[in-house]
Structures are given as structure tokens and as C-alpha cells.
């Protein structure tokens, strides 16, 4: 009886051990090492809090965080606004037999390299790129617009990627909704708009939040897109982190900046989790 009880308790631990080991090895230990590094001096290796105080005392560093938050907020909101109707059309308007093909077409951009996609956008947005040529060719503008190497370019590159990600998340959420909700709403006299606003949208909000949080996390930590498309006309946090490593090899400061970035992501996660908890309650 006892041995059965012990083995019963041991089995879940045995099953969870690989995942725990993986997390410990590839997340907890590197994170502890990074935390330790962030508290050491680049000059002499001694203990210091200077790496953290630099972030708060240097307006350029602080500005990088502000830029990151602004860009991430814009990308998240625009991506949700574009992805929701797209997912809704896919789930509700496209016949079931075509949905698989439509989804495949939606994720087609994921099949190319992230770096290649970013450089492709540079070609599209450049002074001699597709958009400017079309606009000048049609006589709508006389001088090319500066589209590449701007925040707009960074946001465009991000949105292109995250709309697809959010579409998948929201689509899955919409497909899980029972048709009974609509029928019940209609039975109670609600029209399509009212049904959407008061029934469908609230029920899909958790899916939107999860997708938005995923967008937030991936966007705020991304180095490639702002580096290629932003033209370094403003720095975001990942660029600031990389800058500390390039020539000076200042890993302690880079670690401190990374931990601050991670703290912001954690706050966003807690806010998201709290909202979902309240929503469910």
C-alpha cells in the first residue's frame, strides 16, 4: 500500500524532472549568472550597484526604455486591431474547407527568415523602393518620403510579423466558441453587432490578452528589426544592451540592462495575469 503510495507520488516528479532540469539549466542558472554579473564592476570585478544606477541616472539609457515601451505599445495595439478582424473573417466568413488553406497563406511569411523579411521591408520602404516609386510615379508626391530608417519602418516590420502570430491566437479562440452563444444571443433579440460586442468580444478577450502579451514580450526584446529598419535614429533597449558588448565587452552593464528589461516584462506579465484572473472571477 505504502509502496504504491510512494510510487504514485514519485511518478509526477519523474515526469516533471526533465522539464525542471531544462528550466534550471537553461533559464535559472543563466539568469543567476546574469544577476551576479550585473552586480560586478567591469573595471575591477568588485561588487557594485553602479550598473543599475547608471540606467536611472543617464537620460539616454532611460530614453531607450521609453522608446522600447512606446514602440512595443504601438506594435501591440496595431497588431491586435489588424489581427482581430482578420481572424474573425477567417473563422466566421471563410468556408470551413478553405480555412486550412487561408491559414496556411496567413502564416506564409513565417516560412522566410526573420532577417530576410526585415531587409525586404528595407527594400520596400527605401527612397528608391516600391512604395516611393509608386507614389512618385503616379504623381502623388514629387519627392520620395523618408519611410526607411524610421520608427515607422520598425513598427511596420514588427506588425507584419505579429499580426500573423495574433491572428493564429485569436482564430483558435474564436473557433473554440460554441455556436450556442450566438444562438442564445439571437434568441434574446440581439443583432449581429450587439452579439459581437456583448458576447463574442468579451469571450475572446483572454485570447487577445495572451496574444498581446506574447507580442509585447517578443517585441520588447527584439534586436534585429529596429537595428535593420530603424536606422539607429533612436535606440531601443536591446540595441543599448548590444552596444555595451561590441567594443568594450561591458557584460556587467549589459546584464544589468537586460535584468531591468526583464523586470518590465515581468510587470507586464503580472498585470496580464491579474487581469485574466479578475476576468475569470
Amino acid at each position: 500500500m505504502n509502496s504504491t503510495g510512494n510510487s504514485g507520488r514519485a511518478l509526477p516528479w519523474a515526469l516533471v524532472t526533465p522539464a525542471l532540469g531544462w528550466t534550471l539549466l537553461f533559464f535559472v542558472l543563466p539568469f543567476v549568472a546574469m544577476g551576479f554579473s550585473s552586480l560586478t564592476s567591469h573595471e575591477n570585478g568588485g561588487f557594485t550597484l553602479a550598473n543599475y544606477s547608471q540606467f536611472f541616472s543617464n537620460p539616454s539609457y532611460w530614453q531607450a526604455m521609453v522608446n522600447s515601451l512606446q514602440v512595443t505599445a504601438i506594435v501591440t495595439v496595431v497588431s491586435v486591431l489588424l489581427a482581430y478582424p482578420f481572424a474573425w473573417i477567417l473563422a466566421e466568413q471563410v468556408p470551413e474547407r478553405w480555412q486550412r488553406l487561408a491559414l496556411m497563406l496567413a502564416v506564409l511569411p513565417f516560412w522566410t527568415s526573420y532577417v530576410v523579411r526585415s531587409y525586404s521591408w528595407l527594400l520596400v520602404l527605401a527612397q528608391n523602393g516600391v512604395i516611393n516609386r509608386a507614389l512618385t510615379g503616379s504623381g502623388l508626391i514629387s519627392e520620395p518620403l523618408q519611410l526607411a530608417n524610421t520608427r515607422l519602418a520598425t513598427v511596420t516590420g514588427f506588425v507584419h510579423f505579429f499580426v500573423m502570430l495574433l491572428t493564429l491566437t485569436i482564430f483558435a479562440n474564436l473557433k473554440q466558441l460554441s455556436p450556442s452563444y450566438r444562438k442564445a444571443a439571437a434568441d434574446l433579440g440581439a443583432g449581429p453587432v450587439r452579439t459581437f460586442l456583448h458576447v463574442i468580444l468579451p469571450l475572446t478577450l483572454p485570447g487577445i490578452m495572451v496574444g498581446a502579451f506574447l507580442t509585447f514580450v517578443l517585441c520588447i526584446g527584439d534586436y534585429i528589426t529596429p537595428q535593420i529598419l530603424g536606422g539607429n535614429n533612436e535606440l531601443l533597449m536591446p540595441q543599448l544592451v548590444m552596444m555595451q558588448i561590441g567594443r568594450r565587452g561591458d557584460f556587467p552593464l549589459a546584464s544589468a540592462l537586460s535584468i531591468i528589461l526583464m523586470a518590465v516584462v515581468t510587470i507586464a506579465y503580472l498585470a496580464c495575469a491579474r487581469w485574466l484572473k479578475i476576468e475569470r472571477a
Binding site: 543617464n58 537620460p59 539616454s60 539609457y61 530614453q63 531607450a64 522608446n67 539607429n232 535614429n233 533612436e234 535606440l235 543599448l240 552596444m243 567594443r247 568594450r248 561591458d250
Partner: peptide, 13 residues
């Protein structure tokens, strides 16, 4: 070197 890099950061921002 550190001060120069910080100055460069200011220029970029």
C-alpha cells in the same frame, strides 16, 4: 572610452 560611448549614445538618441 566609456564616456565617449555614452556621448555616442546621446547622439543616437
Amino acid at each position: 572610452d566609456k564616456k565617449m560611448q555614452d556621448m555616442w549614445t546621446e547622439m543616437l538618441q
